[in-house]
Simulated assay, not measured.
Amino acid sequence: MVWTLPEPMLAEPVNNPALPPGFAAEPKWDGYRALLARYADGRVVIRSRRGTDMTAAFPEITRAAASLPAGVEFAMDGELIVWEGGRVAFERLQGRLNRTAAGAAGMAAQWPAHYVAFDLLRRNGTDPDLTAQPYTARRTALEELFTDQALAPPWTLCPSTTDPTTAAEWLEWSAVGMEGLVLKNLRGTYRPATRAWRKYRVAHTADAIIGAVSRSLTDPATLLLGRYDPTGRLRYTGRSTVLPRPLATTLPARLSPAGEEHPWTGRTFSATWGAKAALTVVLVVPELVVEVRADVSRDSAGRWRHPVKPVRLRDDLAPADVPLFGDDTTTSLT
């Protein structure tokens, strides 16, 4: 019987990380969401959340799945991640999808990926489709598959708990790149393309220096932020979301256009993380400090991967008071 991967089940953002009765919590990983099919004849398909075929982009995972015994068949939901220096390094996944087969193999050799499995949608048996089964049954089947097939790296079984204390402790994993928690109803079925899970993203407040703005000095749209490194160089650390109206109204009078001595002169900024489209910016004198609300998704150098939300100008702080580039000194909002 020919079968295909379903659309992935989705999660609705929530502001409360508390684990309610009747739910399980799993760590939220900072990687590429991926559904993986392993057919009885050994064929493997890895598909992204948006349906992109990623099979050739992750040869190490494809090879591991293909090498399982003949006849083994399953469909998993999970996350592709790369560990580097004791943390999840999302940036090591960047570019995989745009590489040739040789290029993907080179990246796999240098920064091998792991597949963190958190759901089992199909398996061998008389009733192979598990999507109508509750989470508890699917979780048991997933654990049994790991045991029966002795799955080891690059396979990783995602932790799961019904203990609120353990779930709260997982929120402290942000130092290694975990984004937060995903909360799943123990009795819930797998509902493709439906936001029936819940996700809580850990957030922090942090301080950064305004180095540039997008659009114009008189009508800034977003901020480009930086921090000094130990050598005194202003390093780009991320971009803000659209400025809230009060800050957008008061900020223009505080901005001073920079001269050619600005450390970012000649630099090109991307419109979004990993995008090729350039963003038009106006460099400013890096003298203003702003407090931002940021999630924990960073690259290995400490740059924020997602846009941060401006909170307020910090007139009480000078640029020298801002933590150095790569310093994770932040205040948790969990």
Results as ranks from 00 to 15, higher is better:
1 M>I: 07
2 V>R: 12
2 V>M: 04
3 W>N: 01
7 E>S: 14
11 A>Q: 06
13 P>E: 13
19 L>D: 04
21 P>A: 04
24 A>K: 01
25 A>R: 14
26 E>V: 07
29 W>M: 07
32 Y>F: 15
33 R>G: 03
33 R>C: 05
34 A>H: 05
34 A>G: 11
35 L>M: 14
37 A>S: 15
38 R>K: 15
39 Y>V: 01
39 Y>K: 14
40 A>V: 13
48 S>V: 11
49 R>V: 07
49 R>K: 14
53 D>L: 12
58 F>H: 11
64 A>I: 06
65 A>S: 13
66 A>V: 03
67 S>K: 15
69 P>A: 15
69 P>E: 11
70 A>L: 09
71 G>C: 08
71 G>Q: 11
73 E>C: 08
74 F>R: 07
75 A>V: 09
75 A>G: 04
79 E>R: 01
79 E>K: 02
80 L>C: 03
95 G>F: 03
97 L>P: 00
97 L>R: 10
99 R>G: 01
100 T>D: 05
104 A>K: 08
106 G>A: 13
109 A>H: 12
111 W>S: 06
113 A>E: 03
119 D>H: 03
120 L>S: 04
123 R>N: 03
129 D>M: 08
131 T>D: 06
132 A>I: 05
135 Y>R: 11
136 T>P: 03
138 R>F: 12
141 A>G: 11
143 E>S: 13
143 E>R: 12
143 E>G: 07
147 T>M: 09
149 Q>C: 13
150 A>G: 13
152 A>N: 09
154 P>S: 09
156 T>G: 01
156 T>W: 11
161 T>Y: 13
166 T>D: 07
172 E>V: 04
173 W>T: 11
174 S>K: 09
186 L>C: 02
186 L>P: 00
192 P>M: 01
192 P>F: 02
195 R>Q: 13
196 A>W: 01
196 A>M: 02
197 W>N: 02
197 W>E: 01
201 R>D: 00
204 H>K: 01
205 T>K: 02
210 I>C: 01
210 I>M: 01
210 I>V: 12
210 I>H: 00
213 V>S: 01
214 S>L: 00
222 T>S: 05
225 L>D: 04
227 R>M: 00
228 Y>H: 10
229 D>G: 02
236 Y>W: 11
242 V>S: 12
242 V>T: 13
247 L>E: 04
265 T>G: 03
266 G>T: 13
280 T>H: 12
283 L>W: 12
284 V>H: 13
284 V>R: 14
285 V>Q: 15
286 P>E: 05
287 E>T: 15
291 E>N: 10
291 E>P: 11
294 A>Y: 09
297 S>A: 15
297 S>N: 11
299 D>H: 03
302 G>L: 06
303 R>L: 09
306 H>Q: 14
311 V>P: 11
312 R>W: 04
316 D>R: 14
319 P>K: 07
319 P>L: 06
325 F>T: 02
327 D>T: 15
327 D>S: 15
327 D>Q: 11
328 D>L: 15
331 T>P: 10
331 T>I: 12
